[in-house]
Amino acid sequence: MGNSKLYKGSLNTIILKLLEEQGKMYGYEITQKVKNLSKGELNITEGALYPALHKLEADGLLDVEVEKVDNRLRKYYKLTEKGEKETVNRLAELEEFIRSMQNLVNPNWSIE
């Protein structure tokens, strides 16, 4: 269930939200963080994460930085100004979606 299509649509929003909280992060860190936060329930597949990151970068929502860590290069992602604004929008959109889904799936019945 952890990798169902339901999550896929929200991957970008999850990435943006994480970067909003954490400042800058690298790819592997994002997968681990999501796994921890969702207690293993949600497992971001690597094959989906990087394309999503690259696309967000191309759209101007993310900026990249490279640092030498241990004996390799590490690419960090962080939100641009545009990305910060977009994060607010997308989160609002997602919350709205969750609310309407709740209403659809579990309407408040009352027989009065």
Partner: peptide
């Protein structure tokens, strides 16, 4: 390659 190497190495 660099990005993937860092990922694999971390893992």
């Amino acid at each position: 390659q660099t990005e993937l190497v860092d990922h694999l190495a971390g893992g």
